[in-house]
Design a protein around this nucleic acid. Structure first.
Lengths: 287, 287
DNA sequence: ACGCCCGATGCCGTACGGGTATCGTCGCCG
DNA sequence: CGGCGACGATACCCGTACGGCATCGGGCGT
């Protein structure tokens, strides 16, 4: 049981699909299957129920998923703390598992080029913390989506993306070119996990008063999977491409989601100023 | 940075000696050196100061040591939780990094033989928790040393070992055949870490009122290292062999340390009864 | 100054991780 | 009801990297 294998397992547990998990891990499916099987024999427990239609977690798998997530997070934290103790100049960029993800890698590359010798790291977070770890000091600057509770945090808007409903391509409403919340009154909506930022929750589960009982989602991937498998409806920004079989229809009565750079207001490092400027420049050029 | 490498680093950080760490890890020294060096380049920080006389931790190394210990512990916990969720019959034996260590592996083998099909795991703990994780449920039964705070815990004494002072072989007192605390009034004593079991602390640091300012030790290995390097004096049971260059002299005014089997009083599993019986039988035969 | 101890380095064999090709099986649809 | 497609498992191959053996280099003690 090493951290690499746990990363593999987390990917499979979130995608519930070996093929897609392999894509996310930048590898092919067979070695992934083997690694999971080895993990199962190592732990002496079956973690996944395989069927040709898909994959589901056993109780042991669900337990390991939680454990693995905290372990990987702790490992991440360990790196940060060691770097801090070593006095190494380090910049950690937090991104949301979202369109901000690709923006993050792109900006990180530009930032590395601008500041050679500096250690630049990227940390991916999920919906459980829209600040991606700013408050706990896990990251120095975040590429994330407003709105969230901004006390103690300063933000700078890069772009505003309209929000759309994610539907299966065979949905009767899939070919509309726009929708209202009323059109979806009888649908099941995804739920956000417990204990997350209330402002964030209010924004994204604003329409949740209409339907209930959807599955809890922690990442965009999980949200899209829920649409495909559970027949719920999801929400997403219209900024990025969707996988085969899903379409996004603009939702007229949702305010747009703002892609922002965020940092702790007390943190006045010149690196953050620099990062903000580079981010702004990249997005000015892109639009 | 995977868990295996972290285990390597923890071993080196505790032994402060590549060769001994390699022995503890059941491997040879060269690949261990390489692994640590790779870890350093991976983290981008120097973890150890190497000198021909020995090894010392840099601030970054000390930080990683703490992080790695908690990570490995969490990983251990994860295995236990997954096994519990899977409903696998599992027995976890906790041992103190002490003479109880070898007794543990020996008993585990006998126990495995008696209960084939059962998963038997060993967890090594250090002085920070003399119950080796009984209260937190990390282990089902502990092979450890009394006395400690026994509320909620039942113990069964296997053996009583007299306690001795550990001295360097070249110490002027090394050739005595017994000593009293007064003989050591001017020496520096090791310190136990913060927040540990008060009964345990009272027993082992009973003579600490005499000297102060020694290094904090968490394992027997660390204690012995402190004797060799810092010229402090250590305490140990007389049950096991000492490395070259160290001698143990019986301390007349210390009560003996009792090797015990311990389990949660509320836990009335038949496995624990069985374990107690096997342990008693093994030690009856041995004496 | 010589020898010893300890960590580093070079070299080699093996074993494990990852890729490509293919199979077994179940569900779907004509 | 039979063919097709999707998905995970299996077989086989290759490269890397991990561990062992032999040796080197540099301090420290005598």
């Amino acid at each position: 049981m090493d951290l690499r294998t746990l990363r593999y397992f987390v990917a499979v547990a979130e995608e519930l699909h070996f093929g897609r998990a392999a894509v996310r891990l930048h590898m092919t499916q067979p070695p992934l299957s083997r690694a999971i099987k080895q993990l199962e024999t190592d732990l002496g427990a079956v973690l996944l129920h395989r069927s040709p239609t898909g994959v589901s977690l056993t109780p042991a798998g669900a337990a390991l998923y939680d454990e693995a997530r905290t372990l990987l997070e702790q490992a991440d934290q360990a790196r940060t703390r060691v770097a801090a103790a070593a006095g190494t100049a380090t910049m950690t960029i937090g991104t949301l598992a979202d369109s901000a993800e690709q923006a993050g890698t792109q900006l990180a590359a530009a930032f590395r080029q601008r500041h050679p010798g500096l250690h630049v790291r990227i940390r991916e977070a999920d919906f459980t913390d829209p600040t991606t770890g700013l408050r706990s000091g896990l990251v120095d600057v975040a590429l994330t989506r407003a709105p969230f509770d901004e006390t103690g945090i300063t933000t700078h808007v890069l772009r505003a993306d309209p929000v759309g409903v994610v539907l299966r391509a065979d949905d009767p409403l899939a070919d509309r070119n726009h929708l209202h919340l009323n059109d979806l009154a009888d649908r099941r909506w995804f739920q956000l996990p417990e204990g997350i930022d209330p402002v964030w929750r209010a924004f994204w589960s604003h329409p949740a008063g209409l339907g209930q009982d959807g599955p809890v989602v922690r990442t965009v991937h999980e949200c899209l999977q829920a649409v495909l498998w559970n027949g719920t409806v999801g929400l997403t920004t219209l900024a990025h491409a969707l996988p085969e079989g899903l379409v996004a229809v603009p939702l007229l009565d949702m305010p747009p989601s703002r892609l922002v750079v965020a940092w702790n207001s007390t943190d006045s490092s010149p690196l953050i100023r620099s990062f903000r400027q580079i981010a702004a420049a990249v997005y000015r050029r892109a639009s």
